[in-house]
Computed example of a mutant assay.
Amino acid sequence: MTSQQLPLWRRAVAELLGTSLLVMIVVGSGIAAEQLSPNDIGLQLLQNSTATVLGLTVLILVLGPVSGAHFNPVVSLVDWVLGRRSGTGLTLPDLGTYVVAQTVGGISGSVIANAMFEVATSISVKDRTTSGHLLGEVVATAGLVLLIFALAATKRGALAAPAVGAYIGAAYWFTSSTSFANPAVAVGRIFSDTFAGIAPASVPGFVIAQLVGAAVGVGLLAILFPTASRNADDVVIPRSSEAANR
């Protein structure tokens, strides 16, 4: 079987599970950081970002052969857009299914993280809507898109797990928004009024900024890697035909 013959339901399960675990890692480590270092925000961010780097790397390695390990509606959208040129990547039904699975996964990840730490699931009141935060999301998302699709275009998809983990870890620190760069993660983090939370009113601005960032990333790809659309099947990492064995 080729990667495109993998059952959509199986890929959707991988995307839901991966996004759920990613948000569990982000929210859970944020709660743990608050409890362990209540008076040091810098140390809290270090603990949160370290857990995210390691956890995301592992998730990509485990689930990438099944679904490509997008865990991010922006990545799936760009994969679909670029793939239209060459008949590769996600189809429109794939895209819709991925986005729904990722969003459900993000919400469930917050709820489960809250439950593990015996914190009530509640809507976050942490306002993150400033011009600096929104610019940070544009920059973070553009860089993420450029990284992922550049690796695929240059046949270095095997490096995606450590590279994406490292980029997100760095972007925690060099962007003012702490690099959400992911609409599903942003929606999921609404449901935890903790260190990693985000107020619902901040999410639309974040999602718009992430879409703008994705467009910037696609523009940079067109300039730097004009053949990137031919490798949409290899995003984030190539899906293995062996994963389709029934």
Rank of each mutant, 00 (worst) to 15 (best):
G42V: 08
L43M: 05
L45C: 04
L46D: 15
Q47C: 11
N48G: 12
S49K: 07
A51M: 08
A51V: 05
T52M: 04
T52R: 00
V53P: 07
L54D: 04
G55H: 07
G55L: 01
G55D: 02
V58N: 02
L61W: 14
V62L: 06
L63V: 03
G64S: 00
P65V: 07
V66D: 05
S67H: 05
G68Y: 01
G68Q: 00
A69D: 06
H70Y: 10
H70P: 10
H70D: 06
F71P: 08
F71M: 08
F71C: 13
N72L: 01
L77E: 09
V78R: 14
W80V: 04
V81A: 08
G83I: 05
G83S: 00
T88Q: 12
T88L: 14
T88S: 13
L90Y: 12
L90R: 15
L92I: 11
L92Q: 13
P93V: 09
P93H: 06
D94T: 14
L95S: 09
G96E: 08
G96M: 15
V99N: 07
V104E: 00
G106Y: 00
I107D: 07
S108T: 13
G109C: 00
S110Y: 10
S110G: 01
I112Q: 05
A113D: 03
A113P: 00
N114I: 04
A115Q: 14
M116E: 12
F117M: 00
V119K: 14
A120K: 15
A120F: 12
S122G: 15
I123C: 04
S124I: 05
D127C: 13
T129P: 15
H133S: 14
L134F: 12
E137P: 13
V138I: 09
G143S: 04
L144H: 06
L146N: 11
I148V: 04
L151S: 10
A152G: 06
A153Q: 01
T154L: 09
K155A: 08
K155V: 02
R156A: 08
R156H: 01
A158I: 13
A158F: 14
A158S: 14
A161D: 01
V164M: 12
V164L: 09
V164W: 07
V164E: 02
G165W: 10
A166T: 00
A166R: 07
Y167S: 05
G169T: 03
